[in-house]
C-alpha cells in the first residue's frame, strides 16, 4: 500500500465514522446520510481495492489511478450539492406554505377574538420571540 492509498483509506473511514456517529446522535437524518454513506463507501472501496481503481482509470482515460479517486470524490461532491439545492428548494416551498397558513390562521383568530370580546385591537397575536423567552424563564 502506498501513501496516497493509505491517506484516502483513512479519510474514507473517518468520513464513514463521522456520518454514522451523526446519525446515531440524531444530528443527521438518514435521508440525508444515505448519499454521504454511499460516497464514503465507494471511495473506501476504490482506495483499498487498487485493481478496480486502475481498471476504472484506464476505462475513463486517466493516466494516474489516484486521480480517478479525486475525480470520483468530486463527482460525489457535485451530486451532494445538487441534492442540497433540491432539499433547500423543497424547504423554502414548505416554509412559504407554512407562512401563508400562519397568516390565515392569525386573521381567523383575530376575527374570533374580536367577535367574542368585541375588541378591535391591532396588536400582533402571533407570539414574539421576546414573549417566548419570558414564558420560558
Amino acid at each position: 500500500m502506498d501513501r496516497i492509498q493509505l491517506v484516502s483509506t483513512a479519510a474514507a473511514v473517518l468520513l464513514l465514522f463521522v456520518v454514522l456517529e451523526m446519525v446515531r446522535r440524531r444530528r443527521l437524518l438518514e435521508r440525508y446520510a444515505l448519499l454521504w454513506l454511499l460516497a464514503a463507501t465507494v471511495v473506501l472501496a476504490l482506495a483499498v481495492w487498487r485493481g478496480a481503481l486502475v481498471k476504472l482509470a484506464h476505462v475513463v482515460g486517466i493516466v494516474e489511478p489516484p486521480n480517478a479517486l479525486f475525480f470520483i470524490a468530486l463527482a460525489f461532491i457535485l451530486l451532494l450539492l445538487l441534492h442540497f439545492s433540491s432539499a433547500l428548494s423543497r424547504l423554502s416551498d414548505q416554509s412559504k406554505v407554512l407562512a401563508q397558513r400562519v397568516a390565515l390562521l392569525d386573521t381567523r383568530l383575530r376575527a374570533l377574538q374580536a367577535a367574542t370580546d368585541g375588541t378591535d385591537e391591532d396588536e400582533p397575536i402571533a407570539v414574539t420571540l421576546g414573549e417566548l423567552e419570558q414564558t420560558r424563564s
Binding site: 407562512a99 401563508q100 397568516a103
Partner: peptide, 11 residues
C-alpha cells in the same frame, strides 16, 4: 393578512 416574514410578491 400578516405574513410572518417576507415571501416576495408571488407568495
Amino acid at each position: 393578512l400578516r405574513l410572518p416574514f417576507n415571501l416576495g410578491i408571488g407568495g
